[in-house]
Design a protein around this nucleic acid. Structure first.
Lengths: 189, 189
DNA sequence: ACACTACCAGAACGTACGTTCTTTTTAGAT
DNA sequence: ATCTAAAAAGAACGTACGTTCTGGTAGTGT
């Protein structure tokens, strides 16, 4: 055996998230990706073969390490508090830079079926998780009894996307936090 | 005098909207823009000077001709029916390709203050229009009396963004129309 | 200590894209 | 009909970017 690579793949993927977030896919150039990761060009192409497949990998990593962590609140399923915790974390997460998955969908979704597929899968899962939490919340009598759970879940899912866009524009999180309260407040009984 | 340009600027701008919608800003290449508009390269650069300022012009044109037309429902201000008409039209408009303004915000917003500014202005206006309609709706007793108007307007504004993202993923309009009903139904008294 | 392996840094390559220039065509004025 | 000025078409240019290649280097095993 001989030398081992000195970059850690997970680190590289994490570092790349920001580059894509800031400039989008086409706007993120290899020079900056190389410079801001502890990566080298050769390693990059041996490992991934192309910028495109690299994006897919970063996207998967982003979901695993960031979005899933936030969604985990919903999957712990404590009812309404889980939803509140989810939104609190999500707002903090997207603040000032948005969501890589959403950005990728709007930039590449039209041309890239794989991106659309990943996006749909994510939204479906979000929707299902919201339903789970709302059902639990209903059974715990945390929300008003006549709440239409499926509709509400659909609304919450749409709302999350809206936040991701808003986050790019909003300077601070105040506005988004306010909006969240406005949203969840009326649900509670 | 002599020859007059045979392209019509409004037509060119309208035709370009689709190109940017499909591929984003960096993904839309000059060759395709030229090919799909009745424009010529020289005219393009005499008229706009660069791809970037062209985008700004297209964006302004997009707002004037498309978004404003849809927002006009809100500004006619018939209360709840105006909001319903707005969403119906908006869903139809973004279906399958999303919203150019939202796409531009997520692709370029981080780096481009001008884009952020245009985006904020648009969201503010949307929010204000929703407030106007909701107030009217309240005075006409079209919505449940204890509705918090500011909060609801903020929510509606977020939904609109969410729809723009969803529209890229959804094959047909059914899903989005369902979501709209789920959204507006509970408001009505 | 030495050799071997494969990693790192960055130069080099080729292509693709934004922009400019050249040629050709056309509409209007005389 | 002819001349002219400007517009259209697209060739040409330069640069920037994705990708590949090269030379030197640093671990690792003997």
């Amino acid at each position: 055996m001989s030398r081992k690579a000195q970059y850690n793949l997970d680190d590289v993927l994490s570092q790349s998230i920001d580059v894509f977030l800031e400039h989008g896919y086409h706007g993120a150039i290899m020079d900056e990706i190389i410079a801001r990761t502890d990566f080298n060009r050769r390693g990059f192409y041996l490992e991934f073969g192309s910028k495109q497949t690299f994006l897919y990998t970063v996207l998967a990593h982003y979901q695993e390490t960031q979005l899933n962590k936030i969604m985990h609140h919903l999957e712990s399923n404590q009812g309404l508090p889980s939803i509140q915790a989810y939104f609190a974390d999500y707002v903090k997460h997207v603040s000032g830079k948005g969501c890589l998955l959403i950005n990728t969908i709007t930039e590449l979704g039209f041309d890239d079926e794989k991106v659309r597929e990943v996006g749909r899968h994510y939204l479906d899962r979000l929707q299902i998780d919201f339903i789970g939490c709302l059902e639990k919340a209903a059974s715990l009598k945390q929300i008003t009894p006549n709440t239409n759970i499926e509709s509400t879940a659909l609304q919450l899912t749409s709302y999350v996307q809206g936040f991701a866009v808003n986050a790019v524009l909003a300077g601070d999180t105040d506005e988004l936090e306010l909006a969240t309260q406005a949203l969840l407040g009326p649900l509670a009984r």
